[in-house]
Design a protein around this nucleic acid. Structure first.
Lengths: 335, 335
DNA sequence: TCCCGTTGGACAAACGTTTGTATTGACCCT
DNA sequence: AGGGTCAATACAAACGTTTGTCCAACGGGA
């Protein structure tokens, strides 16, 4: 089932088969020959050997995307966009969970490096110096998606200031003035940028966010729960809670329910959309829509272009910042 | 950065470098030579070219796992187990979302076939004939995980009868006699086996499951919601609800809340554990613990053994069927 | 009829490994 | 001293592609 076999059956040289099968525009073939070769290839069930091809060409036609934790459903839509773009480009996508900076990870990364033409990094943690070192080491094109880190090569990000502002605008339009911000891990750039957007939007409405009205919820369920408990602990609760991610919002819901608060009667909540799950929490959550699929698509395209020689540029993907109203926000009531 | 380069620097033949770097036990080297070669390799930052190696060896040292939908968080733990096993074996894992049987999928599968030594199939759908055809076509070892299909080569499954029985036993021990079963897609073997286990366990307690007390929830949120609505619609509600998967339980919670039922006061619910999320729903869910990580590990091991020449066997992984009590079940009360 | 351009296809090298075989000393034993 | 064993290394082929170069035949124009 190699070129040689096909060539033998078709009675031509293997180079002819190779060119014909990839229909190399530079060459030409007699119609009869073409038919003979195609028939032979079909009959033998010929499939090009990806390894031999990669060896000869010096490229793999595949890229990898590194995700920190597949349990975290925050970036499945990004993955889907990436997958789509890869498909269109005829490139294989390797998804790899890199997990915490365990030692075994180094081996996994090393093995990966030899199999791909470039790397997408989703939701990287600033603190992950080993990852940075590896990226420097392999000298492959790499693009950060949705979350960047200080030494990042190229990043494709949302306009997070805008997204955070959209939450504020919606709540203020409902009449809220005492709004708390349950933020993502403030050591990550995404959270930092959302914080900035949040504060500017508040300021634009003549509001400010006093101490005790912001808590770092660390991008995970437990963090969201703890932060929510803190934010509603005082005598005077905020009338609304803006949460940086759906995963944290899950934890927040647990905290609010435990305290017996009803949504949106006692407190309004809004979050940023990352998963269909948002429509199925109790209660369903009003969210800022994020086109993560498009983000993934853009990031993948940028990386693939870079692999093809066009150096990639940093990119901010404007999201519509539309509100999907599922009823978890309402005008505030006097406490 | 090839063997030739290293050999040149070290002043030896490339074959020596090759053997030395893989420390081929059949050969031996002068300590001094070894040191020189190692130093040269280190200095030049030599990394073996995976493609050349694969070409020469005729094996890729990598396997793929096909998952239907990454949005569905039901098998992340399986993935983790697989990942672990691969790591220990020094094999690269490609995760690929195969999605619904779209036409573009064929290309993705074709590309995959050339890059791996074997395929793990997670949560396959019976109806997926294209997938079956592909598996037949590529003639690679393949192992089905957690869910099998009629023509499957080898499967690694849980003792699902047991898992379903565990739900029944727990509810009956609490005093329930009128128990409804929100099942998974009954065209899948997992759901079928759970149904069998469920019914036998009921029978063992002298109970039966009348019509109207079972509904097919189709392995997804919406299906779970619709099925739950159906199950609690009648005048006389069951006192307890056993749900086949966490994903469906999310939908069920929505339905019960919408109907104003409180858990576990009005109705007890139990499900099968598949994700940390179960601890963070409202209310947290009592579950049957499933060691999916172990399942994934076993499946991967079976596949890797098969790749190495030992044909794999069907395998049923006994799970402890321990109950994780998070308070969503209680003794029944008169309606 | 001769020359030349074009077409259709063959030949061969190279990509970076792995591994079977050949070669060279050195050492040991008798 | 001579033969044999063994250690240490070199040589070369092969894996399946892609692609630059070369060659033969053919057709057309002068």
């Amino acid at each position: 089932m190699t070129l040689v076999d096909v060539a033998k059956v078709a009675g031509v040289d293997l180079s002819t088969v190779s060119r014909l099968l990839r229909d190399d525009r530079a060459a030409s073939y007699r119609p009869e020959t073409r038919a003979r070769v195609l028939a032979a290839a079909e009959q033998l069930g010929y499939r090009v050997n990806a390894q031999a091809r990669a060896l000869r060409l010096g490229r793999q036609d595949s890229i990898a995307i590194l995700v920190p934790d597949l349990d975290n459903f925050g970036f499945t839509a990004v993955l889907r966009g990436v997958q789509e773009a890869c498909e269109e480009a005829g490139v294989t996508l390797l998804i790899s969970e890199i997990g915490s900076s365990a030692p075994e990870r180094t081996d996994r990364l090393a093995a990966l490096a030899g199999r791909v033409d470039g790397v997408l990094v989703a939701h990287a943690q600033d603190t992950d110096t080993a990852l940075q070192a590896w990226l420097d080491d392999i000298r492959l094109p790499s693009v950060f998606v949705q979350r960047s880190i200080p030494g990042a090569s190229v990043s494709v990000l949302f306009d997070e200031e805008n997204n955070a502002a959209a939450m504020v605008d919606h709540l203020v339009a409902m009449g809220h003035r005492d709004i708390a911000h349950l933020s993502g891990d403030l050591s990550t750039d995404t959270a930092k940028r959302r914080k900035v957007g949040f504060d500017s939007a508040m300021a634009a409405h003549g509001l400010s966010i006093p101490r005790g009205r912001r808590a770092d919820g660390g991008w995970n369920i437990e963090g969201g729960r703890a932060a929510a408990e803190k934010l509603v602990a005082g005598r005077k609760r905020p009338t609304a809670l803006a949460v940086d991610s759906l995963v944290q919002a899950i934890g927040m819901l647990g905290a609010l329910h435990a305290k017996g608060l009803s949504i949106p009667d006692d407190i309004s909540v809004i979050t940023i959309d990352e998963h269909p799950l948002a429509a199925h929490t109790t209660p369903p959550l009003t969210t800022v829509y994020l086109d993560q699929r498009e983000l993934g698509r853009r990031a993948a395209t940028a990386l693939l272009d870079w692999v093809d020689g066009t150096p990639a540029q940093n990119l901010i993907v404007e999201s519509p910042s539309d509100i999907i109203d599922r009823g978890s926000t309402a005008p505030p009531v006097a406490q």
